[in-house]
């Protein structure tokens, strides 16, 4: 994918100059900023993703550190969800999708032919962009994961797991009286929190969150952000968000994607106060996207 679609106008020589620089930077395919961390939890090298013939992710290199929250930002359609789905091989379910490159989880290549994806996904959980509760009761939605993994031995243990997961997702007070009602009967924001509760009930080590707060009001958003902060103590979190404030609030590092390329990555503070790349600057100052 080429980033030379901007119209080059001959009457503004200054613009031409910057564009040529951009194209040059792009042709090197060099991501600005420090992609690697010491002792990473996940390590992605030269990751390309194709949907059929169309390339959606272009040679992305990125490390995700232990106990860190990494935010992924970028304009709509730039491939944030696609990249996130690579990290627990959810893209396997899309027939046309092909992933090349190397993604390591604790030095284990997750695209290794011999690797079993089932435990991988229990280890790397995911909250989807669109809430997708199961056609089951609220209780069963949360109990589903612990049950299939045999995490609990008795009904009372399960009750405890369900209650604590719902509490941490900030949903318990709203649903404690109707746990036996269908999860699909909740409002969009409640469904999203139910999906978060469902994911943390399994206790994954890495949690991928695709715009978890897009349907939430400020109060619920604050609860989820609190949860993310709390989870960071033990887990690793990659979060896609369209809210710059949210990225600034919850993450330690931020990665900016643009049309399938990872443009810039760095400390969240630095990205938002002193972006190195013109595209990043344009995006966070609101001139793009």
């Amino acid at each position: 994918m080429q980033f030379n679609t901007q119209v080059v106008s001959p009457v503004t020589p200054l613009m031409v100059c910057t564009d040529i620089e951009l194209i040059a930077a792009h042709d090197n395919r060099k991501t600005v900023g420090k992609i690697s961390v010491t002792n990473p939890r996940m390590r992605c090298r030269n990751v390309n993703v194709f949907y059929g013939d169309k390339q959606a992710i272009n040679r992305v290199n990125l490390d995700i550190g232990r106990h860190e929250v990494i935010a992924m930002i970028g304009p709509s359609g730039c491939g944030k969800s696609t990249f996130l789905r690579c990290l627990n091989r959810m893209n396997d379910t899309i027939d046309s999708c092909r992933v090349t490159g190397e993604i390591l989880l604790d030095d284990q290549d997750i695209y290794d032919k011999k690797l079993d994806v089932v435990p991988l996904r229990a280890q790397v959980g995911m909250v989807f962009q669109k809430p997708n509760p199961f056609p089951k009761s609220i209780y069963e939605n949360v109990a589903y994961g612990p049950r299939i993994h045999g995490l609990v031995s008795s009904k009372s243990d399960l009750d405890v797991v369900v209650e604590s997961s719902l509490c941490r997702a900030g949903l318990w007070d709203e649903v404690k009286d109707r746990l036996d009602q269908p999860g699909t009967g909740l409002s969009g924001g409640q469904q999203q929190r139910l999906c978060i509760a469902r994911t943390i009930a399994v206790g994954p080590e890495v949690i991928l969150m695709d715009e978890p707060c897009s349907a939430l009001d400020p109060i619920a958003t604050a609860k989820i952000e609190g949860l993310i902060d709390e989870l960071r103590e033990e887990y690793t979190i990659a979060i896609v968000t369209h809210s710059m404030q949210q990225a600034a609030r919850v993450s330690q590092r931020t990665a900016y994607f643009h049309l399938g390329d990872l443009i810039e990555v760095g400390e969240t503070n630095q990205i938002f106060t002193n972006p190195q790349h013109k595209l990043t600057e344009d995006y966070i100052t609101g001139r793009f996207g």
Partner: peptide, 9 residues
Amino acid sequence: DGSYALGAT
């Protein structure tokens, strides 16, 4: 997807 993402077979 929701079920797979929880590590269900």
